[in-house]
Design a protein around this nucleic acid. Structure first.
Lengths: 185, 185
DNA sequence: CGAATGTTTCGTCGTGCAACGAAACATCCG
DNA sequence: CGGATGTTTCGTTGCACGACGAAACATTCG
């Protein structure tokens, strides 16, 4: 579960985001753009030497990918997973991170709550179940795609526009910690 | 957008997760349990004095809430938002954070991609739209709930079990950066 | 009250790391 | 080839912070 290895890896990734300069770089790339080192340095307001070491760390940590092009080197986010991570962190910072909704000494609060309710998460799990019931998914190890019949069903249910390119995208099959079930991601 | 304030706040939160001891504490609480300082110190393997300052920082940063109880003080995650944050970070660390799927110098890759595709995100937005079309949501500033008729519709579509308590839960109304639209969270 | 237990505060030490200028390296252009 | 421009490496400095033991504080129990 929370084996020592897990927390070190978690801390390692978090540390990459824990410096304002690096956070600024990632935010600047959130629109999917690819930018050269110099420009990023200017955006976050540090010297070229400094931004260079930040970029190196972000690339080494697989948060960015680099693409050499002449005497420039263009950096961009390594993938949607990274974008999602930055997004989550940014949203957490946007709101004041709700203080405890109730600090009342209600003994009921003390019973172990085995999960946090998460509306979208539960819909994701429910949706996954329905899709699998209908053989609407093509499952291949941990990658999965919507089958044509599945796409049709979702369209009829009004959840998908006809011809929506999303239908073609591969999803990932992973365990949602909140639900401890497989879900769509 | 990525105003200096935003990146400092982001870095600030990330810094709280950037220490193995603190990451371990949060992971240990991911099951929703509330644990006293001493136990947490033992779990992550640091002296009482050390865990105390970590806990203080996590509470000050609104990631944990504390609940005094006799000579113990029980700590637990401050809310589902925090659980989601830790979960995202842990999942990012679990897989090797996909290296660039294609490093090919395809010039098409260089065009600005204005968004990252996110299957669940797009479903969330689509679902939100359908629900609003049907007046299935009771919207009150930035809180929202499913109306009875909305719950009925989702049940008929097979996305909700009859009597599912989720239907009673308030959702949040926030902008999804990926879709730049309101969505369910 | 006084001992036992759980927790925080204080003071100190050591290490990690961000920042910069200067210099090395690479690439384009005239 | 040589000068201009973009980027990285090197070496240094300074600060932030995690770790701990000792001592102070709080709470329960005998």
């Amino acid at each position: 579960m929370s084996a020592p290895a897990t927390r070190h890896r978690l801390a390692e990734i978090a540390a990459l985001l824990a410096e304002p300069a690096r956070a600024g770089i990632l935010l600047a790339l959130m629109d999917g753009s690819a930018r050269p080192a110099g420009e990023l340095g200017e955006i976050v307001g540090v010297a070229p030497a400094t931004v260079s070491v930040h970029l190196r760390k972000l690339v080494d940590g697989n948060l960015l990918v680099v693409q050499a092009q002449g005497r420039h080197r263009y950096f961009r986010l390594a993938g949607e997973e990274v974008a999602h991570l930055v997004e989550t962190l940014a949203l957490a910072g946007a709101r004041p991170l709700v203080a405890a909704p109730s600090t009342r000494a209600d003994p009921l609060l003390r019973r172990a709550r085995t999960c946090y309710q998460h509306l979208a998460g539960q819909f994701g799990v429910a949706l996954f179940d329905r899709l699998r019931e209908r053989n609407a998914l093509l499952i291949d190890s941990d990658a999965l795609r919507l089958s044509p019949s599945g796409a049709r069903w979702l369209t009829e249910a009004g959840l998908l526009e006809a011809g929506d390119p999303v239908a073609q995208l591969p999803g990932r099959n992973c365990i949602d910690w909140t639900e401890r079930r497989f879900h769509l991601a």
